[in-house]
Amino acid sequence: MDTLWQYQFRIILLGDSTVGKSSLLKRFTDGVYSDVADPTVGVDFYARSLDIEPAVKIKLQLWDTAGQERFRSITTSYYRNSVGGLLVFDLTNRKSFEHVREWHREVSEHVLPYHMVYILIGHKSDLDKDRKVSREEAERLAAELGVRYVETSAKRNSNVDRAFELLTRDIYELMKMGEIDARDGWEGVKTGLSNKVLYPVEEVVEREKSCNC
């Protein structure tokens, strides 16, 4: 049997209520969209795997957090054990954009001493006529926070996969550079769940040649 996954990343979605975090996750994990979504209570869990490069499969544990203040004490416990964060705002809701800095600051304080990689998401790009935040303004905020910026639409399935893939690749590259690694007691990154030992092609050939069976 093939490898199940080499790494597991825990990723959390952050942002005000009704910005569309649940819609993004359902589109990414199940390929579906619904105009009607029940509000998240506390935290919901999703999962999907990505093939980042040949023989490297990464399982994503995706945590959908409630944006309401009354659930904040529940969701803060998940910040520390996440390696990636999607900062999501609604392009048609100015206040949700203005709250991004607060989300970034709050989460950054809770994850220390661990490292979290962020990406800024401007969601509901299909509602262009109702847009309250320009791309230029959002890109300036992303530059200020030192993160990527992507505009998405769960309804049109625009850039949804790309957003998650970019964040996953950024985390993976930092792992290869040694800036992020799996640690005991931290759930952000886990390594290795495989059904077989993987050998380089050349070594497989040599093993077959030397086999007497």
Rank of each mutant, 00 (worst) to 15 (best):
Asp2Asn: 02
Asp2His: 00
Trp5Ala: 04
Gln6Val: 11
Gln6Asp: 14
Ile12Met: 12
Leu13Lys: 02
Ser17Cys: 09
Ser17Asn: 08
Gly20Cys: 04
Gly20Ser: 02
Leu24Ile: 09
Tyr33Arg: 00
Ser34Leu: 05
Val36Arg: 02
Ala37His: 12
Pro39Phe: 06
Thr40Lys: 06
Gly42Ile: 10
Phe45Tyr: 08
Tyr46Ser: 03
Ile52His: 07
Ala55Glu: 10
Gln61Tyr: 15
Gly67Tyr: 07
Ile74Pro: 07
Ile74Asn: 05
Thr75Ala: 11
Thr75Ile: 15
Tyr78Thr: 12
Tyr79His: 14
Tyr79Thr: 12
Arg80Tyr: 13
Leu86Asn: 03
Val88Trp: 01
Asp90Arg: 08
Thr92Glu: 10
Thr92Arg: 07
Phe97Val: 07
Phe97Arg: 01
Arg101Gly: 08
Glu102Gly: 11
Ser108Gln: 10
Ile119Ser: 09
Leu120Ile: 11
Leu120His: 10
His123Ala: 13
His123Ile: 01
Ser125Val: 14
Asp126Gly: 11
Asp126Ser: 07
Ser134Trp: 08
Glu136Val: 09
Arg140Glu: 10
Arg148Val: 01
Val150Pro: 01
Val150Arg: 01
Glu151Ile: 06
Glu151Met: 10
Ser153Val: 04
Ser158Thr: 04
Asn159Glu: 00
Asp161Trp: 00
Phe164Cys: 13
Thr168Ala: 13
Arg169Ser: 08
Tyr172Asn: 09
Tyr172Pro: 11
Met175Gln: 05
Ile180Val: 14
Ala182Lys: 05
Gly185Cys: 07
Lys190Gln: 14
Leu198Thr: 07
Pro200Glu: 15
Val201Lys: 13
